[in-house]
Design a protein around this nucleic acid. Structure first.
Length: 901
DNA sequence: TGGGGATTT
C-alpha cells in the first residue's frame, strides 16, 4: 500500500482555553493526584481503571516527584508530602477444587509530612431540617466569590479553576456554577488549601472543592440533586464524603453505583485512604463475587447491577439513606433501570422516617434531561480538570483525495503524518472498530518502518481489544522503549474501560461497532456506526490525561456536526426480557406504563413480554390483559443472575435430572469464549487441532461441558498433588508458584482463557449456591447428554431451527421466513444436522447462529405450537392497546409501579 | 466455511 499520499490537511480547532489575561498561554499541569490503586489484577487481565478517576503512582514516581518538590521547596512554603507504597491485592485462589476469589486488602496509612494549612471548618448543617425551605437557611450565600486557587503540592501548578460565583440565585433552581473554558483566568498565587477531613491524609485541591459549600448546602436541603462534573472534578470521591460530613449517613449508608467493577473497587480504595480507614470500615465496596462491606460501612461503592439485585431482595433499599448514581451519562441499562426504580422508591419513602435521597452524577451536559426526569431537581456544576487538547479535523476541501469511508487507510496515513511531525516520545492512541481492522493496521504500520527516514523513530504498533489474550493486552501498558513510538490501535475499550499512560495524540476514525437488538426478529445486529459527539469528545480526552494533547479526527467538521449528540442508551438497543423480569419481581405490571428516561419502542416492549410469556415466566392478568404477573416459575427465574431463557434451561434440567451439568454449561455460557487463551507460538493449524479435540457431534454446548469437566478433573489432580507436596514441606511460595504455573500451562495447552475460566468457575459456584437455597435436588446425567440437550432445547426453544436442504440454510422454527447459517466457529457448521438450537443470533455480513446444539424436533414442537398461539393473542392485544392509547391520549394518569414497593 | 465493540448480576 502506498502511504505517501498527501492526505493530511487538517483543520485546527480553535483553541478554546488556557489563554491568560495578557494573551499569554497558560500551561496547565495538574498537581499529581495522590492515589493508591489496587495492583493491576483485573478480571480479564487488562489493567483497568475507572472512568475518570484513574491515577497511579508507583514508588519510582514518588521519588521523582520528591525531587521536584525539593526544587520548589521554597516557593511552596515548605510543604512536602511523602507517599508510601500502598497496595491491595486481589487474587484468585483454589480451595478444594473450587476457584475462589480472595481479596487481601492492605492499606497503610500515609504518613503525611504535609503541613496542613487549616481551613475554616465546613459548616455542617443539622439534618433536622432536611427538606427545609431555602429561606430557613441561615447560611449567607450572597455573592461570595471563591477565589481561584493555585495550590501546588510539589511545585507543579494546578490548573486554575475558573472564577466561581456562588450567588443567591444559585440557590434557586438554576445552574450555579458554569465552568467555562473561555473564562479561565490567570490566577494569583494563594495559600494552598487542604481539606482537613482526615488527620491521616491530606489530598490536593480538587475543582469540586470550589463548590463544596454549595454542595453541602444542597445535599442537606434537596431530595434529589444532579451533579454535573467533567473528568477530574473529583465528584466520584468527594460527594459521598460530603454526604457523610453533612451527617446524612447517620440515617443509613450511602450507596454509590458505578457501571464497572474496577471503578467501584478503586474509588472505594481511594476514599478509604482519604478518610483514613480500611476497606470494609467506613468505606467499602460490593461487586459480584466480592463484598467488602460490613455493618460499619457508611459509603458503599457498588456496581449498578448489584444495587439492582439488592433492590429485588429489599425493594425499598431502606438500608441506604442516599443512593448516588455515578456516570449516569453513560446510560447503562442498569443505571437507567435503577433511576426508574429509585424514583418510585423515593415516592414510597417520602413520608417515612427515612426518606431516600438521590444524587445523579453525570459528565456531559445532559442536565436538562435528568432535571426534567427528576421533577426539576437542582443542578450543581463542577469544573473538570484535564489538559487542553488541540482537535484537528480533515479538511476535504484542501485534500480532494480524502474519502471518509476508507478510514482504515486514512488511519495509516495519519499515523505516518503524526509520527513524522510530532515530537518523539509522544505515544499515539488510535480508535478503530474491530479486531480485523486493528490487526490489519498494526501489520501495515510495522511494514511502514521500512520506508521511514533514518532519523525517525521506530513505530511500535500495539493492538488492543477485549478478545485479545491478556498477556498481549498488557503490552499496551508497557513502557515505550527508547527510540520507538508506541501506537496503540484499539477498539472503544480504551474509551472508558482502560486508561493508558503516556498518550499524547489520539487518532479517531469516528467509527464504532455496536450491537443493536432487532426486537421483532430477536436478532442482534452488529454494525459499524459513526460515533456520537459525546463519544468523539471522550476519545479526544484520552490524549490529555498526562499532558496537553492533540486529537486528529479522520472526518470533516461538517461530518462531525451530523453525528448524534449522545450515545444511544443501552436500554434502547437490547433485549428487555431480563430487565422486565426483574421489574416484575418488583411489582411492575404494565411495562408500557414504565417511566424511563428514554422509553423503549413499544415493539421492543411487546417482544420482551412475548418472550417471557412463552417461557412461562409471566402471564397476563385475566381482568386486564395489558397487565402481567410473575408465575411461580418466573419467580424462581429471578433468583438466578441469568437471562430468562438460560434460567429456563436450569428449570428444565431439574426436571430432566441433569442440574449439575446444566449449571456447568450455563455458567460457561455467561463468559465470553473460553477458547481464546494460549500463547502466540501456536500456529493456526495447532489452534484448529486443539479445538477439534473438544469437538462433539452433539454440538457446542456439550463441547463446552466436556471442557469444563476436563478442567474440573485437572484441578482435582492438581489439588491432590499440591496437598501431597505440602506434606513434603515445600515452601508455600514455591508451591503457589508451581500451582499457578501448572494452571497456566494447562490453559495454554488447551487454548483456554484463564480469566474466563475462573469467571465461569465462580459463576458456577454462585449458581450452585442459589440452587441449594432453592432446594433444587442435586442430579446428574452422567454420560447421557441427551437429557442436557433436551433441557437446552426446551429452555431456548425460541431459537430452534430446521435445516432447509434446498436453500442450504436453517429456518427459524417460530418464524420460517428467517433463514440463517451456523457460524463456522461452531462444531456443527459442517455436519448440518436436521434440527438445532442456538444460544445467539448475530447479524454481521450474514445471519449467523452462535453456539449450536443438535436437538430432536419433538422436544420443541409442542412449545412452538403454544408459542404461536400466544403470539397470535399477543399481537391482537397490542393492536388493541395501540388503539386504546390513541383514544385516551394524552396521558391519562401518572404511571405507577403500584406494588410491594 | 467466516470473523465478534463494551459492560454487568
Amino acid at each position: 500500500m502506498d502511504v505517501n499520499g498527501n492526505f493530511p490537511a487538517w483543520k485546527k480547532k480553535k483553541r478554546k482555553f488556557k489563554i491568560g489575561k495578557d494573551g499569554q498561554k497558560i500551561k496547565l499541569k495538574p498537581s499529581f493526584p495522590i492515589s493508591v490503586f489496587p495492583k493491576p489484577a483485573q478480571p480479564n487481565g487488562v489493567i483497568r481503571q475507572s472512568g475518570g478517576q484513574e491515577s497511579n503512582i508507583s514508588a519510582s514516581l514518588t521519588i521523582k516527584k520528591k525531587k521536584k518538590f525539593k526544587k520548589n521547596k521554597n516557593k511552596q512554603n515548605g510543604i512536602a508530602v511523602e507517599m508510601k507504597d500502598e497496595f491491595m491485592t486481589s487474587s484468585v485462589q483454589l480451595t478444594n477444587g473450587v476457584l475462589t476469589k480472595k481479596a487481601k486488602v492492605e492499606l497503610k496509612t500515609i504518613p503525611s509530612l504535609l503541613r496542613v494549612v487549616e481551613k475554616p471548618a465546613t459548616p455542617v448543617r443539622s439534618i433536622s431540617n432536611l427538606f427545609a425551605s431555602q429561606s430557613d437557611s441561615k447560611v449567607n450565600y450572597s455573592e461570595k466569590t471563591v477565589k481561584p486557587v493555585k495550590p501546588s503540592l510539589l511545585g507543579t501548578p494546578v490548573p486554575s479553576v475558573s472564577k466561581t460565583t456562588i450567588s443567591k440565585s444559585s440557590v434557586a433552581r438554576t445552574i450555579a456554577f458554569t465552568p467555562s473554558k473561555d473564562n479561565v483566568k490567570s490566577t494569583t498565587p494563594s495559600t494552598p488549601k487542604f481539606v482537613p477531613n482526615s488527620e491521616k491524609f491530606t489530598r490536593p485541591q480538587l475543582p469540586i472543592d470550589v463548590v463544596e459549600q454549595q454542595l453541602m448546602y444542597e445535599l442537606a436541603s434537596q431530595e434529589t440533586l444532579i451533579v454535573i462534573g467533567e473528568t477530574g472534578s473529583g465528584k466520584s470521591t468527594q460527594v459521598p464524603q460530603l454526604c457523610v460530613r453533612a451527617g446524612i449517613a447517620e440515617k443509613g449508608a450511602i450507596a454509590v453505583t458505578e457501571p464497572r467493577r474496577v471503578a467501584a473497587v478503586s474509588l472505594a480504595t481511594r476514599v478509604a485512604i482519604e478518610m483514613g480507614t480500611d476497606i470494609g470500615g467506613v468505606v467499602g465496596y460490593h461487586v459480584r463475587f466480592e463484598n467488602a462491606t460490613t455493618h460499619k460501612t457508611k459509603i458503599e461503592y457498588m456496581t449498578d447491577g448489584i444495587v439492582l439485585r439488592k433492590a429485588l431482595v429489599s425493594p425499598l433499599l431502606d438500608k441506604y439513606s442516599t443512593v448516588i448514581i455515578d456516570e449516569a451519562h453513560e446510560r447503562s441499562l442498569h443505571s437507567d433501570v435503577l433511576m426508574c426504580i429509585l424514583k418510585k422508591c423515593q415516592e414510597q419513602r417520602r413520608e417515612s422516617k427515612n426518606p431516600l435521597r438521590l444524587i445523579i452524577m453525570s459528565a456531559t451536559l445532559q442536565a436538562d434531561k435528568f432535571q426534567a426526569y427528576f421533577d426539576n431537581a437542582k443542578v450543581v456544576l463542577v469544573a473538570g480538570r484535564t489538559f487542553p487538547i488541540e482537535v484537528f479535523h480533515v479538511n476535504p476541501k484542501i485534500n480532494k483525495s480524502f474519502s471518509s469511508t476508507d478510514y482504515v487507510y486514512n488511519t495509516v496515513i495519519c499515523v505516518k503524518h503524526v509520527h513524522l511531525n510530532e515530537p518523539k516520545g509522544h505515544d499515539i492512541l488510535v480508535f478503530l472498530t474491530g479486531s480485523e481492522e486493528i490487526e490489519a493496521v498494526a501489520h501495515q504500520l510495522a511494514e511502514l518502518n521500512g520506508s521511514l527516514p533514518a532519523s525517525a523513530d521506530f513505530i511500535l504498533p500495539v493492538p488492543l481489544y477485549a478478545a485479545l489474550r491478556p498477556e498481549k493486552q498488557k503490552e499496551a501498558f508497557r513502557k515505550t522503549p527508547q527510540g520507538a513510538r508506541k501506537v496503540i490501535i484499539s477498539t472503544n475499550i480504551a474509551e472508558t474501560s482502560v486508561t493508558i499512560p503516556g498518550i499524547r495524540v489520539v487518532i479517531d476514525s469516528g467509527k464504532v461497532k455496536s450491537k443493536r437488538f432487532e426486537a421483532t426478529n430477536r436478532i442482534d445486529v452488529l454494525k459499524v456506526h459513526n460515533v456520537s459527539k459525546a463519544q468523539a469528545k471522550q476519545r479526544a480526552g484520552r490524549a490529555g490525561r498526562d499532558a496537553p494533547g492533540k486529537c486528529y479526527r479522520l472526518y470533516s467538521r461538517e461530518d462531525f456536526h451530523k453525528f448524534e449528540t449522545e450515545n444511544m442508551p443501552e436500554i434502547l438497543r437490547c433485549n428487555l426480557s431480563a430487565t422486565f423480569l426483574e421489574l416484575m419481581k418488583l411489582g411492575m405490571k404494565n411495562p408500557h406504563r414504565l417511566q424511563l428516561l428514554d422509553p423503549p419502542e413499544p415493539e421492543n416492549i411487546d417482544a420482551a413480554l412475548l418472550e417471557l410469556t412463552s417461557l412461562g415466566a409471566i402471564k397476563p392478568i385475566t381482568s386486564d390483559r395489558n397487565k402481567f404477573i410473575l408465575t411461580d416459575m418466573g419467580n424462581s427465574f429471578c433468583m438466578y443472575p441469568l437471562p430468562p431463557d438460560h434460567a429456563r434451561v436450569l428449570f428444565q434440567a431439574q426436571k430432566e435430572g441433569c442440574i449439575m451439568e446444566a449449571i456447568k454449561i450455563i455458567a460457561a455460557m455467561q463468559t465470553d469464549a473460553l477458547f481464546s487463551g494460549g500463547s502466540d507460538s501456536k500456529s493456526d493449524l495447532d489452534v484448529e487441532r486443539i479445538r477439534r479435540r473438544f469437538e462433539t457431534r452433539e454440538g457446542d454446548h456439550i463441547t463446552l461441558l466436556k471442557l469444563v469437566l476436563l478442567t474440573n478433573n485437572f484441578f482435582d489432580q492438581l489439588n491432590s498433588k499440591t496437598e501431597a507436596d505440602a506434606r513434603y514441606n515445600k515452601s508455600n511460595k514455591s508451591l503457589e508458584r508451581e500451582y499457578n504455573e501448572a494452571i497456566r500451562k494447562f490453559c495454554n495447552d488447551n487454548m483456554i482463557n484463564e480469566q474466563h475460566l475462573k469467571t465461569a468457575s465462580m459463576i458456577e459456584d454462585q449458581l450452585k449456591e442459589i440452587a441449594v437455597e432453592q432446594n433444587v435436588p442435586f442430579s446428574t446425567c452422567g454420560a447421557d447428554f441427551t437429557k442436557i440437550r433436551k433441557s437446552i432445547a426446551v429452555g431456548m426453544f425460541l431459537n430452534s431451527c430446521e435445516y432447509d436442504r434446498q436453500e442450504d440454510r436453517y429456518r427459524l422454527m417460530i418464524n420460517p421466513a428467517i433463514t440463517l447459517k451456523i457460524h463456522p466457529s461452531s462444531c456443527l457448521s459442517r455436519s448440518k444436522p436436521a434440527y438445532i438450537v442456538f444460544s445467539e443470533l448475530m447479524k454481521t455480513n450474514d445471519l449467523y447462529a452462535l453456539q449450536v446444539t443438535l436437538i430432536d424436533a419433538d422436544w420443541v414442537r409442542p412449545l412452538i405450537t403454544e408459542h404461536k398461539k400466544i403470539r397470535k393473542n399477543h399481537l391482537a392485544e397490542s393492536a388493541q392497546r395501540i388503539q386504546q392509547i390513541a383514544q385516551v391520549e394524552p396521558k391519562a394518569k401518572k404511571p405507577k409501579l403500584n406494588t410491594t414497593l
